[in-house]
Nucleic acid binder design. Sequence first.
RNA 1: GGGCCAAUAGCUCAGUUAGGUUGAGCGCUCGGCUGAUAACCGGGAGGUCCGCGGUUCAAAUCCGCGUUGGCCCA
Length: 1067
Amino acid sequence: MDRFAEVDDQYDPHTVQERIFSYWDDVDAYEKTKDHRADGEDFFFVDGPPYTSGAAHMGTTWNKTLKDLYIRYHRMLGYDVTDRPGYDMHGLPIETKVEEKLGFENKKDIEEYGEENFIEECKAFAEEQLDGLQEDFKSFGVWMDWDDPYKTVTPEYMEAAWWGFQRAHERGLVEQGQRSISQCPRCETAIANNEVEYEDVSDPSIYVKFPLKDRDGHLVIWTTTPWTIPANTFVAVDEDLSYQGVRATKDGEEEVLYVAEECVEDVLSTGRYEDYEVVDEVSGEEMVGWEYDHPLREEVPDAPSGEGTCQVYTADYVEADRTGLVHSAPGHGEEDFERGDELGLDIFCPVGGDGVYGDSAGTYAGEFVKDADDDIIADLEAKGLMLHSGTTHHSYGHCWRCDTGIIQIVTDQWFITITDIKDELLDNIEDSEWHPQWARDNRFRDFVEDAPDWNVSRQRYWGIPIPIWKPEDWDGDVEDTIAIGDREELAERVDQDVDPESVDIHKGTVDDLTITEGGTTYTRVDDVFDVWLDSSVATWGTLNYPSETEAFDELWPADLIMEAHDQTRGWFWSQLGMGSAAMGEVPYKEVLMHGWALAEDGRKMSKSLGNIVAPEEAIDRHGADAMRLFLLAQTSQGDDMRFSWDEMAEMQRRLNILWNVFRFPLPYMRMDGYDPEETTVEDVADDLELVDEWVLSRLQTVKDEMGTHLENFEQDKGLEALLEFVVEDVSRFYVQVVRERMWEEEDSPSKQAAYATLYTVLEETVALLAPYAPFVSEEIYQTLTGDAGFDTVHMCDWPEPDQQFWKQGLEGDVEVVRAVEEAGSNARQQAERKLRWPVKRVVVDVGSEDGSDLAGTVEVRADLIADRLNAREVQVVPAEEDWGELTYSAEADMSLLGPAFGDDAGRVMNALNEARVGEASIDALEAAVSDELGEAVELDAEMVEFVRHTPDGVAGTAFEALDGEGVVYVDTTLTEDIESEGYAREVIRRVQEMRKDLDLDMDARIRLELDVSDDRIADLVREHEDLIREEVRAEEFGNVENGHRKTWEVEGVEMEIAVETVAAAEA
RNA sequence: GGGCCAAUAGCUCAGUUAGGUUGAGCGCUCGGCUGAUAACCGGGAGGUCCGCGGUUCAAAUCCGCGUUGGCCCA
């Protein structure tokens, strides 16, 4: 790009974006930036891999934008940043999508299609999704290593998981065993607790009577899952709760029912009993050991009947709710399982992975469990064991992918027994620093403390095969199994011929491999890993460890990871668990936990609510830079973000202000041939004017603030500081002040100083902005630096404050000037005097200073204030003095004056209201009133309220600055001299407007004809002919024949103005 | 049902760490500027600080109980 080239009048994000994309391409900007930092200190960032199903949504966009910001920022700090993106590509969600695509209904369809074929389909699908995601991420300017992402489906990544798992196996943290798990009967696999989605459903609500064996009566239990009753093994009570046996009457028949005392009334009315009497009262503890008959013994002959079954036990999950007695089936419920295990009871689960009863379920065999509910209810009713059967609404778990109701069953699963190293995990947490800190100390710690063993096995296809080979007739001792750590080891130990270089280690390949050692043949277990295990090894998987070791030895563990708060239980956790199990430490040092992107209505974005905003739409409307700024203006510290089109539009507007600031000096710099290398701010240090020094100092402050904010991961505060500097300081103040210097036709040291200042401000501003808004920053940087700068702004060093230009006292001074200016403009507005018209004088009456030298500052900066307020003179009244020209009147409070003066009150009031005094004191007022009335009057301070009066033509407005305060008075009294300049300026403005109508070049010369209807005004205007001539570039005054002619009314005076270019006149 | 987080102007958010008269930007409205100009600048109006209770001389801020939203867990 040519230096100081002409740029678009308006900031158009899309043309900028397109131009920069192709520019980056042309100069290999990304590669050059990385090379530029290749020798820097390492910074190991690890990308949390998004799941490859569907396009990037606003949440992912926010996440990647944050990552991009901090990666760019660290590069500017000099680090050699690891930026390999990752994709999580295995797992059930992709399997179900592919099943849908192929029209499959269950596992049998997959088996028929062939495992290997199915895996290929899954891989192709995931790759396709990956391409879409990459394009999305590139579209808003994320710079990561798109040519070499890590994928959880490649052999070198998969073996990272094998390796980690092998380490855990070696430490004795791998176990196989029965567990109660959530099973999706459609997907026929266990699903993780965090994959269970709860929905409100209607279910049976039954109260069942279990006949007691050695005594009269029944235990009454309540359940919403009749299908679990065949597996009933015991009934649980709370040991401290008080239970009652009640003799209840219904339809003339009596029976004894045992329920918790607190539940008696409710249970009996639910069962429509007419009357009851308490016949027994026992504690839960006393009931332990009571035996009962299994309610479905005839239907399910295999139902639990062994040692210790069908008895009452205590359990801590019992509450005095419903009946206070809990039907417990260790073959199903998780808590039941744990208690049953503790009690040493046999586990009975008559249900298969597909949710269908097996042969052990007796008459229910072959039925799907939920379908069997009705039969079971009918059977219980027929046997007279149903106390009440109804329905209830409650939340019930469903499979997150296919929405099928989950069932709890007990199956064989593989676990990493992280409960064995719970203390180690809790210690390791301390080694990571989190932003915000509460995320670690509250949320994460709570979760880790309660976390159960990690079930890592899934009975599916599209995943990393569990690398365990077990011997024939295995007795369940994990020590007798073989865990393979990588492809090399696989090739060495298996019986078949395997090429470690080319082997794909998905299920289709490894299932048939066997190992024979010590005369025993080992076969692989069928399962694949839970997909959460895949990403848990990302910190070494992304470095291709263990197949490559160099990068790992240098970099591991990760310096930084950043994800949304749902990952507390996801990736943050899985990495801690796997890192601790395999490495004995937490694999990341620093965590940034951001929030979720909510829709404009404050709800989460979802299809069903129809409130989704796609990133493409945002880019379409406002451009990638504005979208990024919007996202980065949100706090990244755990809070959710509320999407807002208005705010995004506002960001575009602010970029437009930057654009205007940027393009304003370009024509002048071009005309004067300004050379930034020849004339730096250091070179012109002696010629810098106050505002130059000031804006340079502000720049140092902003650099300092941004550095601090970004270090604290408060990029929102950093952005705010930068944009405020651009809008408030540079645009609203500096450019306003400096414009006149640039308009000067002659080159001058002052002008060079202004160029150097503005150039420096702009160049450093876009460097600061570059990590946030990479496109517009690049465009501005390239236009400013041309061939003299880096190929890309992203190669720049992060700007650091320069003490030479950092003058905080000066910043304070200008703060005062601006406060005075603001109050002065306000006063002008009150007096209805436009800024174009000079005012005779401005009086700054300092009220209090409170340690700061407010009066002194105003005095020193009087010229600047005069300039800003277009005042002929600035007077300062110090804090200890009053401005002599003020007068005060008083308003009487008649409720106090009346009683005090009785009949004289009226006279006193009139005198009071008319009095004018030079100071707002009760003594002065008394004197004035006494004088008026000719007699002494004693007044009380409470009786009056003083009102300040300014002289005619003067308006005042209060201001505050630097812990002090005061009032700015503007004297708008007209003099001929002022009128003369005022009218002249009115003429100038109108001529300028007409030049614009004609679309004249800035340096075009004109002939001007001026006809003012009022003679006096015409004379006044003539006095400033030279000023007019210069300002509007008029070669001459005279008759205009074919020019642009217009009649204006200026302050009630008619003026006819005509303009033509000199060239046109000559032609 | 439990844990964590949030609720402040019409909108988006500061202010809560450490109690002391709630601020900004946008929007609205009134004005100004007119060589950055389909830009820019100034003034004004606008608040039950989610509700209720408590602690305190004093609560947006601390505590308790709710309501609504978000994440996670059951």
